[in-house]
Computed example of a mutant assay.
Amino acid sequence: MTARPGPRMRANRAGASGYAAGLSLVVLALTGAVGLALKQPWLFPSLGPTVMLFFESPENEASRPKNALVGHAVGLVAGAACFYALGLSGQPSAPDGGLTVSYVVAGTLSVAITTLVLTLLKTPHPPAGATTLIVSLGILTQPPQLLAMAGAIVLVTLAGWALNTLLLGRER
């Protein structure tokens, strides 16, 4: 199948902007609705840049579904590993209790690990850096929250891939 030009490559800037904004709205609203129904945090900050990549730059390597899934998975694991290894469980999150040396170490180390692994695997996905900070800074750390984050990442990625494939005729 021949891929049609992505929205960035189209001459009509308003059409490309509407495509990206509209589909970002749809996918994040769907994710938020699932979160409301399950009473779990299915809408969190790093999903915004992910959907923006999917719909603003679908041709970009970082926009590939594999990159999003691997990137956020590595971010979740690295963030949780640093959070728990530094004994931050039971402490108020960095935004609530203030930034401490332990949170600085957890945050910086987890992003460095995420960057290292994604670079070695050749699967760039910059929003994964936000995912690792959300976890390593204690914002979302409980197992049900981490599972909700993983579910939301899968939903957003599948919806983004499906919509781009359906509307742009591309498979990645």
Rank of each mutant, 00 (worst) to 15 (best):
M1W: 02
M1L: 08
A3F: 11
P5A: 04
P5W: 09
R8D: 14
R8T: 08
M9V: 01
M9Y: 13
N12K: 08
R13I: 13
R13S: 13
A14G: 07
A16M: 07
A16G: 15
A16K: 09
Y19S: 03
A20R: 03
A21L: 15
A21Q: 03
G22H: 12
S24T: 13
S24H: 02
L25T: 12
A29H: 02
A33R: 12
L36E: 11
A37S: 11
Q40P: 06
Q40W: 09
L43G: 08
L43H: 03
L47W: 03
P49T: 09
T50V: 13
F54V: 10
F55W: 02
E56S: 13
E59G: 13
N60S: 11
E61M: 06
E61I: 07
A62V: 06
A62T: 06
S63K: 02
R64T: 09
R64N: 06
N67S: 14
A68W: 00
V70H: 04
G71N: 05
G71M: 06
V74P: 01
L76C: 07
A78M: 10
A78Y: 05
A80R: 03
C82R: 03
C82F: 15
F83E: 00
F83R: 06
L86K: 02
G90S: 10
D96F: 14
L99E: 09
V104M: 15
V104G: 14
V104W: 09
A106D: 08
A106P: 07
G107C: 04
T108P: 00
V111S: 10
I113A: 14
T115F: 09
L118M: 15
L118Q: 10
T119R: 13
T119I: 04
L120T: 10
L121V: 04
L121R: 06
L121P: 04
P124V: 07
P124E: 11
A128C: 15
G129P: 04
G129T: 05
T132K: 08
I134F: 13
I134G: 04
I134L: 15
V135L: 12
L137G: 04
L137R: 04
G138F: 09
L140W: 03
L146C: 08
A150H: 06
G151D: 10
A152G: 11
L158Y: 02
L158T: 00
L158I: 06
A159W: 02
G160S: 14
G160M: 02
G160H: 01
W161I: 00
L163I: 15
L168A: 05
L168V: 11
